[in-house]
Design a protein around this nucleic acid. Structure first.
Length: 362
DNA sequence: AATTGGGCCAACCGCACAACG
DNA sequence: GCGTTGTGCGGTTGGCCCAAT
């Protein structure tokens, strides 16, 4: 530590490069290679720091740099990779020949991010935005539940929502599996490569779209001729990948009837401890036969905020049997006071399927 | 014609980490 | 093992350009 940045050296020029400087730099590197960046400016006759020279070369002067607008394919690839890699611009750039990390970063910040936001997706998680999900319980609370339940097609409606929740849960579980392990190494590690991950997500996503429900617009891509594409992956390939993926280890959500009287905590949660909201008041938690805890999955933890199934250190329950009124308002509270500022879609299986809630509502 | 606000992007800044002596 | 150096990386900034007012 204690090393001062090379650019702190006084007398060195900063700011935009002149054509003369560019020429000197290009000429020198073409002749000698860059070698030590620190020594280069002096040898090349430039009054710049080495870092500035390196940046100028790698981001602008390098002969293999592709300039100009990003193509549709490049845009899709960036979205795709970002959904898997996050802000690993250099890693993303390595998949886009001729594009620099800086260029991709700028393109992301000025175009793609806004695009995703406009589409209602969280640009960081590539999932529907948290505020949308946190508002859904509010919408539910506002809805007239009696009217819904009296409606002849309400079961069909619930079944459809449940099917959507299944897709959500599976996607989240996959995303969790593909996350790099945290520093403490507590979570399972993935053995998938980036492209395998993308293909898998793509396959799930395409199934979702087939069902009329698109959850990962940034992962599923349609070329103008209608075929899914990613790095040459065809729909047929995707389907075969999808067919080859076993979901047996995933929560078997489809087997749970909406009005089932079985408990839901064990059936809809992944193999790990179910994740629950942390900020619900747990100081006077009551658990017992007379109090069926209403538990929520949550899409993150302090260690891994975007991980859908990371176990919560302190499971939290509602303090009394949920009633039609209190459970919904508690739910709203829970969602709005989520520790991590995000309510993952995984809330929904619980919300939709929790038997005690339905009992109380009936 | 002048001003303003937003988009865009090259460049800078500071941190992290590997390599080296 | 420790300090220093070189480099890579992601976030941020500053300034140019242009359309809207």
């Amino acid at each position: 530590m204690g090393r001062s940045p090379c650019c702190d050296e006084t007398g060195l020029k900063k700011g935009p490069w002149t054509p003369e400087e560019d020429q000197k730099l290009v000429k020198y590197i073409q002749k000698h290679g860059h070698g030590s960046w620190r020594a280069l400016p002096r040898l090349a006759g430039l009054n710049r720091c080495g870092k500035s020279c390196r940046l100028r070369w790698t981001n602008y002067l390098r002969p293999d740099i592709k300039r100009g607008k990003f193509s549709q394919e490049e845009e899709q690839t960036i979205l795709n990779l970002h959904s898997v890699l996050g802000n690993k611009w250099s890693a993303i750039a390595s998949h886009l020949p001729g594009r620099t990390d800086n260029e991709i970063k700028n393109f992301w910040n000025t175009h793609l991010k806004k695009k995703l936001i406009q589409m209602g997706f969280d640009p960081m998680t590539h999932r529907p935005r948290a505020d949308i999900f946190s508002s859904l319980p509010h919408l539910l609370a506002l809805a007239n539940f009696k009217e819904l339940m009296d409606h002849p097609s309400w079961e069909e409606h619930a079944a459809r929502l449940q099917a959507e929740a299944v897709q959500m849960a599976r996607l989240q579980y996959l995303q969790f599996l593909f996350q790099p392990p945290p520093a403490n190494g507590n979570t399972p590690t993935s053995t998938f490569t980036d492209m395998e991950t993308i293909n898998l997500l793509n396959s799930i996503s395409s199934n979702s779209i087939k069902d009329g429900y698109s959850v990962l617009g940034s992962v599923h891509f349609e070329s103008p001729n209608g075929s899914s594409s990613l790095g040459g992956t065809t729909s047929a390939n995707l389907q075969s990948i999808h067919d080859s993926v076993s979901f047996s280890h995933l929560p078997d959500l489809l087997q749970i009837p909406c009005t089932t009287s079985t408990t839901t905590n064990s059936t809809i949660s992944p193999p790990q401890t179910p994740v629950v909201m942390n900020k619900i008041n747990n100081s006077n938690m009551v658990q017992g036969p007379e109090s069926t805890p209403l538990m929520f999955s949550h899409g993150g933890s302090e260690n891994s905020p975007n991980s859908p199934w990371f176990p919560s250190p302190s499971p939290t329950c509602f303090t009394s049997p949920p009633t039609r009124n209190t459970s919904i308002s508690n739910l709203v509270d829970a969602c709005s006071t989520s520790s991590y500022g995000e309510v993952a879609p995984s809330v929904w299986p619980d919300l939709l399927l929790d038997d005690s809630l339905f009992h109380e509502m009936a």
